[in-house]
Write a protein that binds this DNA or RNA. Structure first.
Length: 204
DNA sequence: AGCAGGATGCGCT
DNA sequence: GCGCATCCTGCTT
């Protein structure tokens, strides 16, 4: 996976990332996952992108060089991770939604004790970030640098015929865009959930 | 097996 | 304040 490739359109990078391996080193040990589910987000013309309304402090990494890691915090307790791409024209990124743990499943299990099967350890974006031990401290790191604690490697390329696509999970805007891609048949692919406002009952 | 609801912090209107 | 690129538990079919 070259920097040239990472600097391309998020839609292309997303499919290219399937089958790649993400490896994280920490004092606790090493965990690696094979990516099986991703989503593309593309700046200015994508209402679901964090960059849709321009640059802020939170999304500033998405405006930086391709191949860096954009980490954000959601729902008060979870981190999600993206690979930055397409920096020449508009900001873009690929959300890493799910993977299969290939190295360090014991450490991964200790970080996600609720998982009932190994296939669920990294099934979902916050779970994926969780098993890799990624937090806001990792925001902005270069995934292509040998000095980085988290690095991206070429795995076994997934054949076109084994890639499926559909609308992004939990996104109400642009539901007609099939910008989520996943590896057909992987048990680790997360469940689809439609976007839209959840009903919140007023309490008495 | 499937869904509703709560937990929980922070960025943005 | 509101709502979020979510996860987990517990209760219903």
């Amino acid at each position: 996976m070259t920097s040239d490739e990472l600097a391309r359109d998020p839609l292309w990078v997303a499919r290219r990332l399937l089958g790649c391996e993400l490896r994280s080193s920490s004092p606790e040990g090493e965990v690696a996952v094979r990516l099986v589910e991703v989503e593309a987000y593309r700046g200015t013309d994508d209402p679901a992108s964090h960059c849709y309304r321009g640059r802020t402090e939170r999304n500033s990494v998405m405006f930086g060089p391709a191949g860096h890691l954009y980490v954000y915090f959601v729902y008060g307790m979870h981190f999600c991770i993206n690979v930055v791409c397409m920096t020449d024209s508009v900001p873009g990124a690929v959300l890493l939604r799910a993977g299969e743990v290939t190295t360090g499943s014991e450490l991964a299990r200790s970080r996600k004790p609720a998982a009932r099967k190994d296939a669920q350890l990294a099934s979902g974006p916050a779970r994926l970030a969780g098993v890799l031990g990624i937090t806001r401290e990792h925001n902005g790191i270069d995934l292509t640098s040998p000095d980085s604690p988290v690095r991206l490697y070429n795995g076994t390329q997934v054949a076109e015929d084994d890639i499926r696509s559909g609308p992004r999970v939990g996104v109400a805007a642009a539901m007609d865009l099939p910008w989520r891609s996943w590896v057909d048949g992987s048990e680790s692919v997360s469940a689809y959930r439609r976007g839209g406002r959840r009903r919140t009952r007023a309490r008495a």
